[in-house]
């Protein structure tokens, strides 16, 4: 999600390289994100080769922003307790 959040769109090859996941693992992650409506998957041909292009949906972008906010709050509380 973080990788798709910082770019406009990316294909599966790019995501696999960046995340260092296996094809199967990456596919299953993407399928779940697509089912949740967080990721839009576009299948097309680049020349004669198939290409799967992915980008975060508006819903996905908002969900990720919300997740980061909550995580920040949690981490903030933990660090305050430590002090």
């Amino acid at each position: 999600m973080a990788y798709l959040y910082v770019v406009e769109s990316a294909d599966m090859v790019f995501l696999k390289n960046q995340t260092e996941l296996t094809w199967g693992n990456l596919s299953s992650h993407i399928s779940k994100l697509e089912e949740a409506g967080y990721v839009n998957v576009e299948k097309r041909f680049k020349g004669k080769k198939p290409q799967t292009l992915l980008h975060l949906s508006e819903k996905g972008r908002n969900a990720f922003t919300e997740y980061r906010k909550k995580l920040t709050q949690v981490l903030g509380k933990i660090s305050q307790r430590k002090i």
């Binding site: 910082v6 770019v7 769109s9 990316a10 599966m12 090859v13 696999k16």
Partner: peptide
Amino acid sequence: LPRIGTVKFG
């Protein structure tokens, strides 16, 4: 590009 993949930046 075939090795690293395609990406569009923000």
